[in-house]
């Protein structure tokens, strides 16, 4: 599994890069995930607005709602939920697509043409995810902050200047970078695990439609668990 990742990463820096396939993946992983990211981002921010206000008001610290929402979203919730959403929407499709290509011998056909299947199936997805997932995470964060603003400021009466002013005081560039590093690593995990599970459909999961469905389930579950596990590792390293 690590060799699969290593080979794919090496190919990312070895031309030729399949630009057409890369752009198609940007659209698939990035653009087509936008709606789900906007929705989950907005509602996550709104829930944080309610919960944050409820908790902070117990200590008379409602003024810190902005930083609380901002830090939670930028450092943790944004990267993790965005990655989980991309896994559910695009990762499952990636595993199923490559799995079907495996059982219908399309991957064998590529090999027999003397072409490296990883260059066609994995590299464009890896590059597209590395660009798309951090961008989607940023959109998630911004939407979440707006969601928190709507609840905290417009509904519960926290001052608008206080919400954003305190957020600016307490959220550093280091926090933003932490979120970006996390989402970058999550993007690699998503493509790596989902492509691997699809690529080796048959060997580990059995052939046929059942094999593909098993590979897809395994891809989503393994990726989700790895995202949370790696999130813990990165948080403890960057704390």
């Amino acid at each position: 599994m690590f060799l699969f990742l290593l080979q794919s990463l090496v190919l990312c820096f070895t031309p030729p890069i399949k630009v057409g396939l890369f752009l198609r993946q940007i659209r698939f992983i990035g653009a087509q995930s936008l709606v789900v990211i906007l929705l989950t981002g907005a509602f996550s921010g709104m829930v944080l607005g309610f919960q944050g206000y409820y908790s902070l008001s117990r200590f008379g610290s409602e003024a810190f709602l902005g930083p609380a929402v901002g830090l939670a979203l930028i450092k943790e919730i944004g990267p993790v939920i965005s990655a989980l959403m991309v896994t559910g929407r695009a990762g499952s499709a990636i595993a199923a697509e490559i799995g079907i290509m495996r059982i219908s011998e399309q991957i064998d056909a590529l090999e027999l043409m003397g072409l490296n299947p990883l260059r066609y199936l994995v590299v464009p997805k890896l590059l597209a995810a590395v660009i798309s997932v951090p961008l989607l995470t940023s959109i998630f964060d911004v939407t979440g902050i707006i969601g928190g603003y709507l609840i905290g400021v417009k509904l519960l009466g926290v001052g608008s200047g206080v919400y954003f002013g305190e957020m600016a005081n307490y959220v550093d560039m280091k926090d933003v970078l932490e979120g970006i590093w996390k989402s970058l690593s999550f993007s690699v995990i998503i493509v790596w695990v989902c492509c691997f599970k699809g690529y080796y459909t048959g060997i580990y999961t059995g052939f046929g439609a059942e094999g593909v469905s098993r590979a897809t389930t395994q891809a989503v579950v393994t990726t989700s668990v790895l995202i949370l596990l790696w999130d813990y590792v990165m948080t403890s390293l960057l704390f």
Partner: peptide, 19 residues
């Protein structure tokens, strides 16, 4: 192996066309 395969043609049972 890639260089040996350059001279190969293979017709798969199911065709294996790219969807």
């Amino acid at each position: 192996l890639e260089s040996v395969r350059k001279g190969f043609g293979f017709l798969f049972q199911g065709g294996a066309l790219f969807d």
